[in-house]
Amino acid sequence: MNKFLLTAFTLLLMCFVPAFGQGVSFSPVSDVSALQRAVRQQSEATQTLSSLFVQEKYLDMLQDVLVSNGRFMYKKENSVRWEYTDPIRYTILIHDGKFTIDNDGKISEFSTQSNPMFREINKMIVTAIRGDFVGSPDFSPTYFENEEQVMARLVPASAQVRSMIEHIEIYFQKSDMQVVKVLFAEPGGDYTAIRFTNNLVNREIPDSEFLH
């Protein structure tokens, strides 16, 4: 169970990385240091984030796309709400050292302090939101850009993670440094694409949004 959850949450956490957007044809970023600085500046300036998302899971063998909808909220230092509203009702809440999963009314609660797995996840969230993924030993990054967007392609360093995720693409909108799309490419041609819309930055979010 722990391995399954850890993997699932690892994928989720990648969605919280602050950055910019997406475009048509991408070419390598010429000034990587400037990009890294921009990512860090943006993450430091971000106190809260909220958005709606559409998740598309493409299954190559089934030649089919499964679509889920939901909403996402983040508040510094590390409060997170990741909520699916359709077709399932499933919410992950992280707040005040607690990890809560509400699976259609069935509540599971974990302490991030007493549980090493959730402590690690908690640490990863903070790292991701601060933009530390840029120099992270867990990923080998390459950066691309076009006129509107920057795309960070992260290849997991761990062979075990690579057996599930070939690479992750994070698309940032250059104009406001917001994440607009995250794509997880799996071996065999499957992928999960999450598109963010209605992004609201530094809007007041009460703590009650992160509590069950």
Binding site: A8, L59, F184
Partner: peptide, 12 residues
Amino acid sequence: HVAMLSELGLKY
């Protein structure tokens, strides 16, 4: 065809 996925899209 049968596939099981996590809520987050990860294929089991």
